[in-house]
Computed example of a mutant assay.
Amino acid sequence: IGTRLLVFAGRAAREKNLPLLRAAARALGPGYHLLLIGPGMPQGRDGNVTGIDGFMPTDRLAGHLAACDALIHAGTQETFGLVVLEAMASGLPVIGMHAGAVPELVVPGTGVLATVATTEALVDATRALFSLDSAAMGRRARRHVEDRYAWARTLATLVSNYRRVLGVASPGPWVWHAGP
């Protein structure tokens, strides 16, 4: 009780900056615990870091995300950041880097972004998030994802973009309708 549970889910690739996440967890100390989920993650517990190696089914991953206090992401080269959206959809605020696609997803009031990829900056961003109303940030994060990234809206935008590129002004025979 009283320990903040941080989570990162994804593959253990160099661009995810996992050593930085682990260093930040160590620097944050015993009041924080980092859960690393995904293929290639270090298995088991090491201090205040626990790794779960391997692919996790989406329903189980969603349960893990929902049980945490925040997503923490040290990657600086994300081209989209699906795990960021998944965490926000689960009601988690995000701690991340102000780099790549993450700033486009984590709008003000939904998380805290570090401006440089250092242990100190990530620790400061984490402490800043928890000095605020992180639960309210998580609720705003969920609303943001529902408003901007729900499948119906995403697909409608994609179809609209294809129509524009193809020069098709009116709906064609491939119009998509939400619902039954």
Rank of each mutant, 00 (worst) to 15 (best):
P30N: 08
W151M: 08
A27Q: 11
G10E: 13
R26K: 12
K16T: 09
D147P: 03
V107Q: 07
G54V: 03
A99T: 11
A66G: 04
P180C: 10
R14V: 13
R139Q: 14
T50A: 09
A70M: 08
V94Q: 02
R14S: 10
T154F: 09
S134K: 03
A128C: 11
H33G: 05
L122N: 05
A27R: 12
T79I: 11
G109Y: 09
A9C: 12
G10L: 13
A150H: 14
L113D: 00
A23G: 05
L61R: 01
G179T: 04
L61A: 05
A66L: 02
V102I: 15
M97T: 01
A87Q: 01
S90P: 04
S160H: 07
W151K: 05
I52N: 03
L85V: 03
L158D: 01
S131A: 15
V123M: 13
A152W: 06
A87N: 02
Q77H: 15
G29W: 12
R45L: 01
A125Q: 03
T79M: 11
W176K: 00
V84D: 12
L129Y: 12
D46R: 14
E146P: 04
A135L: 14
F8K: 10
T118V: 03
A9V: 06
L158E: 04
L61K: 05
M88N: 00
L28F: 10
